[in-house]
Amino acid sequence: MFTAPEGGALVRNNFNVQAWKPALVAAGVLPLPSSESRTRKAVDGMYRAAGEGNDGPQAAQAA
């Protein structure tokens, strides 16, 4: 369907980030991403990568 400017295969992630998602934002299908939401996703992902531990308020109450 689509080819890269050089004529080869597209890298799916590049197409998604550089063309597809901006087109969806321009069409009003997706909201414009804010730096706050990107930061929140990054922080949440960092904590998920660290694993779920018993270090929240429930753990403090149990002590």
Rank of each mutant, 00 (worst) to 15 (best):
A23S: 14
L30N: 05
A26N: 01
D44A: 15
V11C: 07
P33W: 04
P22F: 05
N16F: 13
S37N: 09
V25E: 13
G45P: 01
R48T: 11
N16Y: 15
R38D: 09
S35F: 09
L24H: 01
R38T: 03
S37G: 12
S35I: 06
G28R: 07
W20P: 00
L24G: 00
L32R: 15
G28I: 02
G7F: 09
S34T: 15
M46P: 00
D44S: 13
F15T: 03
W20C: 07
R48G: 02
L30R: 12
M1D: 09
M1S: 12
Q18A: 15
L30V: 04
V43L: 12
A19R: 11
R40F: 08
G45L: 02
G7L: 04
A42I: 02
A4E: 07
R40M: 12
V17I: 14
R12Q: 10
A27M: 12
A19P: 00
V17N: 13
M1N: 04
F15I: 04
N14T: 14
L24I: 00
L10G: 00
A9S: 15
G28Q: 04
T3I: 08
N16K: 15
L24S: 03
N14V: 11
L10Q: 08
A4Y: 10
G8T: 01
E36H: 07
K41R: 14
N13K: 13
N13H: 11
A42C: 02
Q18I: 01
L10E: 11
F15E: 06
K41G: 10
M1H: 12
R38S: 10
A23Y: 00
N13R: 15
N14R: 13
A27S: 11
V25M: 07
G7D: 11
P5G: 12
T39S: 09
V29P: 03
A27I: 08
G28F: 00
A27P: 01
S37P: 01
F2P: 05
A9D: 13
L32F: 02
R38L: 13
S35P: 02
P5N: 10
T3W: 08
K41C: 09
P22T: 04
A42L: 08
A26E: 14
L10M: 09
A23M: 05
K21H: 04
V17A: 14
